[in-house]
Nucleic acid binder design. Structure first.
Lengths: 359, 359
DNA sequence: GTGAAAGCGCTAACAG
DNA sequence: CTGTTAGCGCTTTCAC
C-alpha cells in the first residue's frame, strides 16, 4: 500500500519531458494539488455554494458575481470533482452501457451515437464489452451498479434472473437494445430478429428460389434470424439444405469455410442467407474462387449492411438496421426518464432489405 | 428539476414487466433503497469499518467475522458505493481512455484488451471516442479529469498545450499509445509510423519496383506513414506518382475511387502503398474490375492487418501492429505505476510486414 | 483483530 | 440572490 500514497507525484522527476515553467501564481501544484471549491470561493470572495451554483445553475446567480467566480475558476484551473458532487447529489451523471462487441459496425455506431447524445446532455458513458453469452453479466452489472450510474443500457433481453433482480432493486432507468420481445426490463429499442429472417426468405421466394441454404453464427439473435428464415422458407414449400452454424463472432474466413462445406449440396440454383455480412462476403469470395455464378447459381443475402458489402464486387444484398438510430433513440429515452418522464418507452426500429448485386 | 427527485421510482408501476415476488426479508426496497455499509454492519453485528475491511483487505479480518459479514452482504444484496469509497480514499478505481475511433480493428482490439486487463485488476475503463483531430481534446480531458480517474490512456502525441498543462497539474499516470516520439507526456506504448512507411518502400524496392504510388487518409499518422514511404522510395531513385489523399476515416469506397484517379498514370508496373487495409481492399477490388493484374501490374500493400485483407482473394499484403499487445502493455504500465512504480516506461511495439498475394 | 471519530469535496435544504 | 448547516457513504487514522 505504500505505493498508493505517492501515486503520480515524484514521477515527473524521472521523465525526460520538460514541463512548462510555472505560470505566475496559477493553480497550486503541491501534493493532492487539486484545487477545490473552497479555493475558488475564497479567491472569488463568495461562499462555496455560490461557486456550485455558477457551475450547475448559472441563472440563479447575479451576473457580476458569476463573472468573478468564473474568472477565479479559470485562473485556478478548477475542475469540479464529480465524485464528490455525485455523492452529495446522488446523481453520478454517468450511464453504464454493456454491449457484446464493438467489432460489429452496428454496435460501434450505436455506442458512438449513444455516447455523443449523452455527452451533449452532460452525461458520460461507461462502456463494458461483455462478449457473447450472458454468463458473466451478473458480475458486470454488479460492478457497474457500484458506480451508481444514473441509468443503464444493456444489449438483448436474455437476462439472468439475478440481473433482473439487481436491476429491479436499483430502480434505475434501463434501456435494452438490439432485440424486441414482450417483457423488457424497462425501456426498449430493438427489432424482431425472427421477422428479419422471414423477410429474407420472402425476398428469395419472390425471385423464384426453391432451394434454401443458411450460414449462421452461434449467437442467440443470429440463430433467431436464421430460424425465422428457415421456417418461412419451409412454409413456402422450399427445399432446405442443412443449416451451417459457425462460431460467434462471425468472420469472413468462417463464411468461406462454410461455403466450402455447402459446396456438394449446391447442385442447383440456391438461395443463401447469412447471419452477417462478413459471412456473406466470405461465401461470395469462395463462390467466386470456386467459379459459382453469383447471383445466377447462388444468390446471397447478408445482414448488417457493413461497408464491405456495399463496396465489394458484386455488392452484397443485405438487411440494414441503423445502429446510429438505435443509439440516438436509446439516448432520448434515457434522457426523458432522467428529466422526470415516466412513460414506459418501447420502440421497434425498422429494418430494411437492401437489394444489391448478389440477389 | 422536479423530475430528478423521483428518478426511477414510480416507474415500475407503469411497466408491464412482472417483478419477482419479494424473496423473504431480502434487500430493503423502499425509496433510496440502496443498502449501505451500515445496514450490512448492523445485520452482521459489526462496525462498518469491519465490513469495509472484508471487502477491501479481507486478510485483516478474522475468518469467522468475515464469514458473517459476507453472509450479510449476500443476504442484503449489498453493492458497495464506489463513489463514496472513491471520495474517501481518493482512488476512483477508474481509468479514462480516449481513442479516435473504435471502427478501426486495431483500436477495437486495443480497447478490448486494455479494458480486460484493467478490469481484472479491479479498475473500470471510461472510454471516450474523440474522432480524428485534437480540436476538442481539451474539453474531453477536462470532463474526464472531473471524474478523478486514477490514470489516463490517450492516443497519439499531438497534444494541445492546454491539455499538457492539465495533465501535468493532475500529476496522474498517463500512457500514450499508437505513436512513438521523443517527448511523451509520461508513459508510451507506440511505434514509429515513419518507419512503417520506410519498410513498405523497401519491400517494394526489393521486388524490383521502380514506380511508386500511394493512397493515404487525411489523418496525421497515416500521412506520416505515407511520407516515410515516399521519402524512402525517392531515396531509392523511384519514380513517384502523385500522392492521393482521401478523407479520414478510411473507407473501401475511397480506395476504389482513389484507384480510379490513379488509373491514367498506371501505364506500367507500379507499387501502391495504402494507409489502411480498407483503402487497399478498395484499390484491389477496383483493379480487378478494371482488369489490372494484381500483383503483376499493380502490387498493393495495406496497413492494419484487418481480417478482410487476410480473407479476400487474393489476400492483401499488409503491415501488422498488434492492438491487443498495445492494450495489454499499456495496462501493465498503468498498473505498475498505480502499484507505486516510478519507472518512466516507454516501449516501441514492433510492427511486421505480412506478405500475401498482392505483392 | 476490531471499533470510533473525523472528514473526503461537494450539494440539498433552508434561512436570510 | 447568497450564505449556513448538515450530511451523502465510505475510508483514513488512531485507539483499544
Amino acid at each position: 500500500m505504500t505505493g498508493d500514497t505517492i501515486r503520480g507525484y515524484a514521477r515527473r522527476m524521472t521523465t525526460t519531458t520538460k514541463l512548462p515553467p510555472d505560470e505566475g501564481d496559477a493553480a497550486p501544484r503541491g501534493l493532492r494539488g487539486a484545487v477545490k471549491i473552497t479555493d475558488v470561493a475564497a479567491a472569488a470572495g463568495v461562499a462555496p455554494m455560490t461557486v456550485s451554483r455558477v457551475i450547475n445553475t448559472p441563472d440563479r446567480v447575479a451576473a457580476p458575481t458569476a463573472l468573478r467566480v468564473r474568472e477565479a475558476i479559470a485562473r485556478l484551473g478548477y475542475v469540479p470533482n464529480m465524485i464528490a458532487g455525485g455523492l452529495s447529489s446522488r446523481r453520478s451523471r454517468m450511464i453504464a452501457a454493456v454491449v457484446p462487441t464493438i467489432a460489429h459496425p452496428m454496435f460501434a455506431e450505436m455506442v458512438l451515437n449513444f455516447g455523443e447524445a449523452m455527452r451533449e446532455a452532460g452525461y458520460q458513458v461507461m462502456l463494458t464489452i461483455s462478449g457473447y453469452g450472458p454468463e458473466n453479466e451478473a458480475e458486470i452489472v454488479r460492478t457497474l451498479l457500484g458506480r451508481r450510474p444514473d441509468a443503464l443500457l444493456l444489449t438483448g433481453l436474455d437476462r439472468p434472473p439475478e440481473v433482473r433482480r439487481m436491476l429491479a432493486d436499483s430502480a434505475l432507468p434501463v434501456v435494452e437494445i438490439w432485440d424486441a420481445g414482450p417483457k423488457p426490463t424497462d425501456m426498449l429499442v430493438g427489432f424482431d430478429h425472427n421477422e428479419v429472417g422471414v423477410a429474407v426468405a420472402r425476398l428469395f421466394a419472390g425471385k423464384g428460389h426453391t432451394h434454401f441454404a443458411s450460414i449462421g453464427a452461434a449467437d442467440s439473435r443470429a440463430q433467431v434470424r436464421i430460424q425465422g428464415y428457415r421456417a418461412e422458407a419451409e412454409r413456402l414449400c422450399g427445399v432446405m439444405l442443412p443449416p451451417i452454424t459457425t462460431a460467434a463472432p462471425s468472420t469472413i474466413m468462417a463464411g468461406r469455410e462454410a461455403l466450402r462445406q455447402l459446396l456438394p449440396a449446391l447442385n442447383r440454383r440456391t438461395a443463401l442467407a447469412c447471419s452477417s455480412d462478413l459471412l456473406a462476403f466470405g461465401a461470395l469470395t469462395e463462390a467466386q474462387v470456386q467459379g459459382i455464378a453469383v447471383p445466377d447459381r447462388l444468390a446471397i443475402c447478408g445482414f448488417g449492411n457493413f461497408e464491405l458489402g456495399a463496396a465489394c464486387e458484386p455488392p452484397i444484398s443485405t438487411v440494414n438496421v441503423e445502429g446510429a438510430t438505435i443509439g440516438r433513440i436509446a439516448a432520448s429515452f434515457v434522457l426523458e426518464r432522467l428529466a422526470g418522464g415516466t412513460t414506459p418507452r418501447r420502440t421497434r426500429v425498422p429494418f430494411r432489405i437492401v437489394e444489391r448485386g448478389t440477389t
